[in-house]
């Protein structure tokens, strides 16, 4: 967990430095939520990929966190029953249950940290990508005028 906190701090420092170096409102959006900066600058495809990946990571993280909390509660309950058991059969039953729940909690803890790292990684890559992306003149818009009307075309950039 400490590693993740330090990683987050490093990402924020990088983003702050990138903002100072590159400047622009786009970085604020990129820091706010992955993909938002790209979408604001017209890179809809890339923005959708970043935003989608971040959403999936955060949703999975939330689900894993809920499951983990529930498993820890079940583990604590089994441990409490085990420590207060007055029959060997109950003690054995709750000891086995406690071991199973502890294994489950270990696995969920690992998955949760991986998902948290993934979410932070996507966020960091998004900021770095945003910092080095070329602004250009915005998304190209073309106008074709015909005899019976006109056509406005907008190009999406990935």
């Amino acid at each position: 967990m400490k590693t993740l906190v330090i990683g987050t701090m490093i990402c924020l420092i990088i983003s702050a430095s990138a903002h100072d170096a590159v400047g622009g409102e786009k970085l604020i959006y990129a820091v706010l939520f992955p993909g938002l900066g790209h979408i604001k600058t017209g890179h809809y495809g890339r923005g959708a990929i970043f935003a989608g990946a971040e959403l999936v990571s955060l949703l999975s993280l939330a689900v894993t966190q809920i499951q983990y909390n529930r498993t820890v509660e079940q583990y604590d309950q089994a441990k409490s029953f085990y420590l207060t058991a007055d029959y060997i059969g109950d003690a054995q039953h709750y000891y086995d249950r406690m071991n199973t729940k502890w294994d489950d909690a270990e696995n969920l803890h690992r998955y949760r940290n991986i998902l948290l790292g993934t979410a932070i990684g996507i966020w960091a890559v998004n900021i770095i990508d945003m910092a080095f992306i070329k602004d250009g003149d915005g998304p190209p818009v073309s106008l074709h005028v015909g005899r019976d009307g006109f056509l406005i075309a907008k190009t999406f950039t990935f």
Binding site: Y68, N69, L83, M98, L116
Partner: peptide
């Protein structure tokens, strides 16, 4: 990160 910081305790050593 604080919301994710609730960790399970160590397993009691033995029966």
């Amino acid at each position: 990160l604080g919301a994710c910081s609730k960790d399970h305790q160590d397993l009691p050593t033995s029966f």
